[in-house]
Simulated assay, not measured.
Amino acid sequence: MTEEYSKAKKIIEENDDLVDDFGGASDDIIKKAQLVLSVQFPEDYKLFLSCFGALTFGSIEIYGVFREDFDNSGVPDVVWVTLNERNLVNMPKHLVILYNTGMGEMYCMNYEDLNSDNEPKITSYFPGFSENAQKNEVLYDNFGGFLLDMIKEEID
């Protein structure tokens, strides 16, 4: 578990009035989600899923897993959202969507761009633009850094 994730979790717990979570996901659901998406989630993200499932914190919504029926789910289900974008705009299979900015940009775990712990960095993705037009700009080195930044921004 990264220090950033620990800090983010502490802030989330201290600001319970801003929190709407889905209840922790079971190990079985987390395993199934990884299988369906053909990825291995980073440790921090697995902790996030087992603790919150998915999370709305103030106005931000961080995608996760909270039910087994991915096909008949919807936002903020990470599996449903990611599979939906893969079908709609042929989004590459190495991207898993975590967050939608609401301005055409998605924040994704990028399994082709790994950090020193062999975990996906968080990069930008613009659905509907060709792969050649994507910059896949690195926004965060890991999930914990992403979560901490998003939570801090919401409080400020």
Rank of each mutant, 00 (worst) to 15 (best):
D141R: 08
L114K: 10
M103W: 13
I97N: 02
V39K: 15
N136L: 09
C108Y: 10
Y111R: 07
F126L: 14
E68P: 04
L147T: 07
R67M: 15
Q34V: 01
S116M: 06
N72H: 13
I29C: 02
F52R: 00
Y63T: 00
E131K: 09
N87D: 14
E153V: 08
L47G: 01
F57S: 00
M91Q: 05
I30K: 06
T82C: 03
N132D: 14
D117E: 14
P120H: 11
M150I: 03
P42S: 01
N87S: 14
D44N: 15
F143T: 00
S38M: 15
A54Q: 10
I29G: 01
Y140H: 12
W80E: 01
K152I: 11
S50Q: 07
K32S: 08
M91A: 05
I151Q: 01
K46T: 02
N132C: 07
D77I: 10
S116W: 04
N84P: 00
L114H: 06
D27Q: 11
C51K: 06
I151T: 01
F66C: 05
L147S: 08
V78A: 14
G145C: 03
V75K: 09
N110S: 12
E131T: 08
W80M: 00
M109C: 14
R86I: 08
F126E: 13
Y125E: 05
L47T: 02
F146W: 07
F143N: 02
L49N: 02
L88S: 10
W80V: 00
I62C: 10
E119I: 04
L147E: 08
S116Q: 07
F129I: 11
D71C: 10
N132L: 11
Y140K: 04
N142Y: 14
Y140P: 05
H94E: 11
E105Y: 10
D28P: 03
E43V: 05
M150T: 06
E85A: 15
W80N: 02
G53F: 00
V96K: 09
V36P: 06
G74Q: 15
N132S: 13
N90V: 08
S50Y: 03
L139H: 07
M103K: 14
T123V: 11
L37R: 07
R67A: 12
L95Y: 07
E131C: 02
V81H: 05
L83P: 03
D77R: 11
L148N: 01
